[in-house]
């Protein structure tokens, strides 16, 4: 009970901090045509190996444990829902979570490079959100950096003895935040300021992308924990198979 009160208090504090932040910004993926050709090609070439790794990783999972196919679908569907939800943020603009942390914890990060890439492709073609020319850069931030960061944070938190829910929350929330920090970095590299160069640009783009994303990252963390709670309640067997829960009953 005392623990719960503390958690609530911390949340209220974080919330309070954001409510006073005075800033006006928008945030989301990099728009079509807004990365110079050489940068677009650079990020795309970085992403391709992750797609190959991801496809192989998914094939392995499906082959060794066909019963996990539906759960893999859940991971993809979760990313699909979350990236469709544009949520208002304290900066007075909207952005959306990514939803890739869940799948990264369940199936490993490279599987999400593929699923996240599919979500981005769908949005680029049908919604003019993101873009085909910036697909490589957006995949790198949302489907490579996001899931790999989430996976590493989850493993580190578990190693340090954090409870499962806390590890899941931190992984999903920080993975989300790092996705948009990466977007800011990508834009700063492509558009260094005339005076001050990349660092000045980075500060500007961070203001646009990262700050708006902070409350959304917290939301994503909470939503991922919600799904994880349900999986722990109904899918104990599958989670044990993926060695998320240890074999003995807790």
């Amino acid at each position: 009970m005392i623990y719960r009160n503390k958690v609530a208090l911390v949340m209220l504090y974080i919330l309070g901090v954001f409510l006073i932040l005075p800033q006006n910004a928008y945030a989301m993926h990099i728009m079509e045509g807004f990365l110079p050709l050489n940068w677009a090609g650079f990020w795309l070439s970085l992403v391709v190996p992750f797609w190959f790794m991801g496809i192989r990783s998914i094939q392995r999972t499906v082959k060794s444990a066909p019963n996990l196919k539906m759960l893999l679908g859940l991971a993809g569907a979760f990313a699909f829902v979350l990236s469709a939800l544009k949520i208002p943020s304290v900066t007075g603009s909207c952005s959306h979570p990514t939803g890739v942390g869940l799948g990264a914890i369940l199936f490993g990060p490279s599987a999400m490079s593929v699923l996240g890439g599919i979500v981005l492709l769908f949005q680029a073609i049908l919604l003019a959100h993101g873009g085909l020319s910036t697909l490589g850069a957006n995949t790198f931030s949302m489907a490579v950096v996001g899931p790999f960061a989430a996976y590493a944070i989850y493993k580190a938190a578990k190693k340090l003895g954090a409870p499962l829910q806390l590890a899941v929350f931190l992984a999903a929330a920080l993975g989300d935040l790092l996705t948009y920090a990466t977007t800011a970095l990508q834009l700063a590299l492509a558009f260094p300021a005339q005076y001050g160069g990349i660092l000045v640009s980075l500060t500007k783009f961070m203001g646009v992308f990262a700050v708006t994303q902070i409350p959304l990252a917290i939301s994503e963390g909470l939503l991922t924990v919600i799904v994880f709670n349900l999986l722990t309640a109904y899918n104990k067997h599958e989670l044990q198979e993926l060695s998320i829960l240890s074999q003995e009953v807790r």
């Binding site: 006006n24 928008y26 945030a27 989301m28 208002p88 900066t91 007075g92 603009s93 834009l187």
Partner: peptide, 25 residues
């Protein structure tokens, strides 16, 4: 988390577009 900004920043545009980054560019 989703509703609070609507109340505390009532006058904001809440533009979803990626226009702000475009402006910075």
């Amino acid at each position: 988390l989703a509703i609070a900004p609507l109340i505390t920043r009532g006058g904001a545009e809440f533009g979803g577009a990626d226009g702000q980054a475009e402006k910075v560019i």
